[in-house]
Design a binder for these strands. Structure first.
Lengths: 351, 351
DNA sequence: CTGAAAGCGCTTACAG
DNA sequence: CTGAAAGCGCTTACAG
């Protein structure tokens, strides 16, 4: 009863490590009175296993408190059971935007239900990017969920050629990339809200657009233009430097300066809109009386602004679910294609 | 030159799996003209390796594009090179609070610099909790960073007895737990801001406290009481049901109802304060003229409220750094003790 | 300083 | 349906 006992650590180096070795498959097999192979079979689907063996093994697993050693399993299956969630953004964009957080949480939850784990990686710097590449090349993960909103991201291209399944969130950051993506319909949503502002009778509808190297910056502006065309007021388009509150404030200030007669504004994200509302307030413009304000995202903040923000809802939970589904399909070797999800208008007090 | 080539997948089942087997240590050893053991030694510190061998191996690694197989390594070292970041919170608290996000990002970044990866796990439901336990028991991670603000969390106790290193963020969720923690000085911060409100000449200082099963709820209220004692106005303390904007709105409304003469309020979190400002605004109270408002956290939102929020700064980046340091020490088998980090007052427009 | 060898705990054809 | 055996790619004493 000394051998393999957990209570008396073996002397050969065990003291240094102090890891309690749990029961192995061998132990379970012995208790169940079957071979290691049979135990493995019940673990992996229980095909070709007699009811008696099955029961014996399950009982033995319970008794011994067996839990599979993932390293050993991965070594032979070449599957890690994990995927990387890679945030490839400049630092400053990262910390503020609630959109990423919601996405991350949703992905974690859904993956967990599939018994797959999520390892979070940041890729803001060249060092971090090379770490990501080494990591995925090293077989630590079976695939990657890439969140990258800015064009020309070097990581996307590298990942694309790394040979493992990748799905990107949002419009792919560069042409010629073969990886599938899942995106909300930015352009359609922008059309929706711009049309809505028009339908409220406003005629001088300006916009605070996002940075032009981002999908949100390009697509949402395109949607705005789809609706307004030449009816967009002169100097009615200002680009924010990033998707932050501060940038929204600055852009709105500039807009009021160049286009003081505006009576509505479509702001390309809720975070920007928070800053824009601030600027409007300081300028003495009443929302919605003087100026209608429409946002984009429907993040938690949208309901808490003064007045509450009319905005475009991105179905983030669904985006997450579809990203995971596509990635899991790819990992399983099945084909999967890109998906674009519809956005909807959410009416509140600001427009 | 056929053997081991990546271009022609071996026929035995390789088509199904389609994983390009990268070069192994064996390949590197052959190219370098040394044994596998020597390659391993340069990988693990390069002690007892001659300069020539070292150079040869490094060259061979570069040429072959070798990258270590973590599964194989983990199998023998019993180290995964990863830690779990476990968010043990009810769902509703999770999605909104920026504090967790900042913490998560900071931990990911710091761990990355140590070449350690972070796997994110949610533990809101019993199913998720049991998955976390199975996961850590299975040796997937070397330790866990536990974020759990509510008392009586069953997970904390389970993790505590799981035998692997755990460090918790904030006050430990139950007495008798032996795991170290890293916390911001909630009580001291609350004292700081309450005293500040007093120093502004206000005499009827109320508070919106957090839920009483959370560290923030208990400690920050204690700090408030430390300063005010019996000078706290009657019906001047209302507990929010959780740390959300909506709860802040509700609590402030109740406070105004029960204690209409209040001239200052310490709100136990910025998110709550956003809701409280809303309620004050609707009630026609001017901030800071009629009512001074102080928050807690100094999250990104604090600078964007109207007026900007005077608040208590939690040194989250430092909390993250210390959590990681403590955990890594524990994993390395070195002792480490709990740490409480000082909080500071940040003056803005609301008080 | 270095090589040969054992062993980590699993899965998976291969025979029965 | 089931067992025996090979092998996944590494690390680590053990001898030299």
């Amino acid at each position: 009863m000394v051998e393999g006992g957990g209570e008396h650590p073996k002397s050969r180096g065990a003291a240094r490590r102090a890891q309690r070795r749990g029961p192995t498959m061998e132990d379970v097999a012995e208790v169940a009175g079957v071979s290691r192979g049979t135990v493995s079979r019940v673990l992996n689907g229980a095909f070709h296993v007699s009811p008696e063996s099955l029961a014996a093994v399950q009982k033995a697993m319970r008794e011994t408190g067996y839990v599979v050693n993932q390293s050993a399993r991965s070594l032979v299956t070449r599957r890690s059971g994990a995927v990387a969630f890679v945030l490839s953004e400049p630092q400053d964009r990262l910390f503020e935007d609630p959109v990423f957080n919601v996405l991350l949480r949703a992905c974690t939850q859904i993956l967990g239900e599939e018994d797959c784990s999520l390892v979070l990686m940041l890729a803001s710097t060249p060092e971090e990017r090379s770490r990501v590449i080494r990591f995925v090349q090293g077989g630590h993960v079976d695939g990657v969920l890439l969140v990258s909103t800015h064009d020309g991201d070097p990581l996307a291209a590298q990942l694309d050629s790394a040979g493992l399944p990748v799905v990107v969130c949002g419009r792919p950051p560069a042409a010629g990339l073969r990886m599938p993506y899942v995106a909300a319909d930015d352009r359609g949503g922008a059309r929706l809200i711009t049309q809505y502002l028009l339908d409220q009778g406003r005629r001088r509808i300006a916009t605070v657009a996002g940075p032009e190297d981002t999908a949100g910056g390009v697509e949402r502006l395109a949607g705005y233009r789809d609706v307004l065309g030449r009816r967009a007021p002169a100097r009615g388009i200002v680009r924010a430097t990033d998707f932050s509150i501060a940038a929204g404030y600055a852009a709105m200030t500039e807009l009021l300066d160049g286009c003081p007669t505006l009576d509505a504004v479509f702001v390309a994200s809720d975070l920007l809109a928070v800053g824009a509302l601030e600027a409007l307030h300081e300028a003495g413009r009443r929302v919605p009386d003087d100026v209608l304000v429409g946002g984009f995202d429907d993040s938690a903040m949208a309901a808490a602004t003064r007045p509450p923000l009319t905005t475009v809802r991105q179905p983030l939970a669904q985006v997450a679910a579809e990203m995971v589904e596509v990635l899991l399909r790819l990992i399983a070797g099945r084909p999967a294609s890109s998906r674009v999800l519809p956005t909807t208008l959410v009416r509140r007090g600001s427009a």
